[in-house]
Amino acid sequence: MPSSKKILHFTASALLTSVAVGLLGFGMSAQWAISNSSCGGTILVNGTAKIELALFEGKLERVDCPLFGSTDYFSVVPTLIDIGGASSALHILVVFLLVLSLLFSAGNILISLYNSVANPYETYMGPIGVYTCCSVSVCLAALALILFVVNISVTGMADSLVEKFSSSEVTLKDLSSEMQVGFFMIIPNIALNLGAIGSIYMYDHAAYTHRREQQKPTEDAPKEIMMY
C-alpha cells in the first residue's frame, strides 16, 4: 500500500490532469477565431465578411460581399479539403495534435491513479510515465496553438473560405483575426499538465532525499564496522 504522501501527490496529479482534459475537450468544441475583412467585387461595392471559426464547424456572414449578403454554415474540415492547399493540411494537423494531446493526458490520469493505489517499479508506470505523458501532451498542445495561428495569419484560409461561398469574383482587404475562447482554453490546459508534473516531481524529489538519508549511516560508518 502506498504511503499517504504518495497517495496525495499522485491523486493531485490525476485531478489536475482531469481538469486539463475537461478544458481541452471544451476548447475543442468552442469557437477558436473570428476573422473580419472588407471586400468588393468587380464594381465599386464595399462590403464586409465575417468568419466565426471552430475546429469542426464554421459560420460565414457576408454583407454586400461582393454584391449580396448571406449567412453560410459549413463543416470546416470537408470544406477546407475541398478548397485544398496548405490551410486544409495545417487545420487537420491541429485537430490531430489536440486529439493526441487528449489521449496522452488520459494516459497520465490512469498512471497517476494506479500509483495512488499501488507501488510500481520505477518504469513507465511510475513517475517516468507521468513525466512522459504530461510532457508530450504539453508539447503537442503548444504546437497545435502555434500552427493554428500560422494557418489563420499566413495561409489565407479566411480568404479562401470567403471566395468559396461568393457567387462572383471578390477582392478582400483589411483582414483581421481575433482568437476566441477555444484557443485560450488550451493555455490553462498546458498549465495544469505542468502542475501535474510539478506534483510528482515534488514527491519524487522527497522520496529520493529520504532514500539518500537512509543510506548515509552506512556510507559514513568506519571501514572496520562495515567489514563485519
Rank of each mutant, 00 (worst) to 15 (best):
L53A: 03
F96D: 14
G27I: 04
S35T: 15
L102S: 14
I51H: 02
G27Q: 04
G47Y: 04
V45E: 09
G47K: 01
L93H: 07
N36A: 07
L80S: 06
G41P: 09
V95A: 13
L110N: 07
S29G: 12
F26S: 13
L100Y: 01
L103E: 04
L110S: 10
S37H: 00
A30F: 07
L67T: 13
S38D: 12
S29R: 08
V94K: 05
A49W: 01
T48R: 05
S70D: 15
A54S: 15
S87T: 02
Y114L: 14
G85A: 05
N108Q: 14
M28S: 09
T71K: 13
V95R: 10
I92F: 02
N36K: 14
I43A: 06
S38C: 01
L44S: 09
P66F: 03
K50G: 01
E57W: 04
A54T: 08
F26I: 13
S70K: 05
G25Q: 11
F26Y: 14
Y114D: 10
A49G: 14
G84C: 10
I81Q: 14
E61W: 00
N46C: 01
V76I: 01
E61I: 12
L44A: 10
I34S: 12
L113R: 06
L97F: 15
F104K: 10
G25I: 11
L110K: 14
L60S: 06
K59Y: 05
A54M: 03
A89D: 12
F104Q: 09
S35R: 03
F74T: 02
T79K: 08
E57S: 10
G58R: 05
K50P: 00
S75H: 00
L97C: 09
L98T: 08
E52Y: 10
L93V: 10
I83H: 06
G41F: 04
R62I: 04
P78M: 03
I92T: 13
L24K: 03
L24Q: 14
S101P: 11
S70P: 01
Y73T: 10
S75C: 00
K50S: 13
R62W: 04
D72A: 08
I34L: 07
N108V: 05
T42Y: 07
V95S: 12
L110F: 13
E52L: 04
A54W: 05
T71C: 02
D72W: 01
F68P: 01
A86S: 09
L44E: 08
F26M: 13
G85F: 09
S37T: 04
L67V: 10
D64L: 13
F56W: 11
W32M: 11
F56S: 06
S87W: 01
L24G: 14
S75F: 00
F26H: 13
I43N: 06
W32G: 09
S35Q: 10
C65E: 08
F74I: 02
A54I: 03
K59Q: 07
S70C: 00
I111P: 04
C39W: 02
M28E: 09
L97K: 06
A49L: 06
W32C: 07
V63L: 07
G84A: 12
G69L: 04
L44C: 00
G41H: 03
S101F: 07
A89C: 00
L55Q: 09
S101H: 05
G107M: 09
V95I: 15
L55S: 07
L80N: 11
W32R: 06
W32P: 08
